[in-house]
Nucleic acid binder design. Structure first.
Lengths: 231, 231
DNA sequence: TGTACATCAGTGAACGCGCGTTCACTGATGTAC
DNA sequence: TGTACATCAGTGAACGCGCGTTCACTGATGTAC
């Protein structure tokens, strides 16, 4: 009886890379295939170690083919950043839409859902999150830097929910102006501390942390400026 | 009369680079000269574009000389990250020490001073801040990741001030556990949004933003868990 | 339905480059006697 | 005070490599007649 012992382990394959299949001369959708490969490779080697050539190879295409669709490497990374921002915005909208009703509890729930969406996106796609805020992200767009976040982006959605909270009486009128700053900073800080590996959640579920921080923000925004601050 | 018009502008020199002076065979302190050059170069081209060779050249030394002091490129960047963390910690201590007294106002002032120190470090040294939280920073140290921040680091100092605030009655006992999370997230988020170019302060002075966010945090921590949250 | 042709999306070889790292070496330094 | 020698901190040439980008090209596609 011929024995062939199957391997007990197959080596870790890592996240699936679009398998290099060169079947058709014309690739179906090379631009997005390249973006997808970029995300996978960045997850693997960091933005540092990302190369256009490797992305092309992963897709099964010659390096120069990429230049048919992107002016250069930076343009590809910019597209990755743009996609990430768009998906984040979409998740924001979806999270908000899922909660109906106009009471204070609903407004609060929508606010927390947004926070969860933000941090969960970061946790699920740390590499895309990093690119978003890296040198090829929104910040590189010059003076109109945060435009991508503002117009129709996460920032706009946050503003809308804060308005609701104001209407619902959850936050105090005096504290509404600039309330975005606190909420965005707190949630973004949590996300970035996690993504950068600086902060580690032990057993605590991520959603719990977000809720805690979100609640804290609302508590801060509920009190008028002169409210007694000392317990 | 011979006219020689002096240039109206001298081109922006950028931050001073340690001038390559090869005078002595033995460099005074090559390790820190390399770190310094690294910081300057990273400020110029980003961590992405940083190379050991260029740092060596900036210091006026052959590329291989660096290997006498650092195992490899990553080790040098790790040293840069470590230095940044150390300086941040030192600034924290200094900021805290500057405020004397044990009343609630003093504790609050110390808390805000720490926040200012954090964000100001980020604003003054965005490249070092980025390296600190980048792939060569604290987060890369594995499971004991945030140890650098905890033991004797900024995190420890923050905890101490929160204890003071508790004692002084500024924050509510119920809300003390885990209060670091809110404060660190909020301040770190502000710092990172600024450094990444996502958020832009208009005319608002940086210190004003920090104070606002710090105050918000304290407001949130002042109320007991069941405090009325709706204004 | 069939052919000519413009357009599009790839190929693959080549370019010059700067990189991280190694190696055998040499100049400077300081210590023992 | 002077010399021998171990140690330290540099040099500089070389390695192999993968990178971004270009170029002249060719195969596939679709449209006009």
């Amino acid at each position: 009886m011929a024995l062939s012992t199957p391997p007990l382990f197959t080596p870790l394959p890592g996240p699936a890379l679009p398998t290099p299949q060169r079947s058709p001369y014309h690739h179906g959708d090379l631009p997005s295939a390249l973006k997808q490969a970029a995300v996978t490779l960045i997850a693997r080697h960091g933005v540092q170690g990302f190369s256009l050539r490797e992305a092309a190879a992963a897709v099964g295409v010659s390096p120069s083919a990429a230049y048919r669709h992107y002016a250069d490497k930076a343009a590809l990374l910019g597209a990755v950043a743009g996609d990430a921002l768009a998906e984040m915005a979409q998740r924001f909208t979806a999270a908000t839409a899922r909660v109906r009703g106009r009471g204070p509890r609903d407004a609060r729930a929508r606010f927390l859902a947004q926070g969860r969406a933000y941090v969960e996106f970061a946790a699920e796609h740390p590499e895309r999150f990093a690119v978003m805020f890296g040198p090829f992200g929104a910040g590189s767009a010059g003076p109109a830097a945060c435009a991508g976040h503002r117009v129709g982006g996460p920032f706009a959605a946050l503003s809308a929910v804060l308005d609701e909270l104001l209407e619902a009486g959850v936050i105090h009128p005096q504290r509404r102006p600039g309330a975005e700053l606190l909420a965005w900073s707190a949630i973004h800080g949590l996300a970035h501390l996690l993504v950068s590996g600086t902060l580690e959640l032990g057993a605590t579920p991520l959603a719990r942390l977000v809720e805690r921080i979100g609640d804290d923000c609302l508590r801060a925004l509920a009190a008028p400026d002169d409210a007694p601050r000392e317990a």
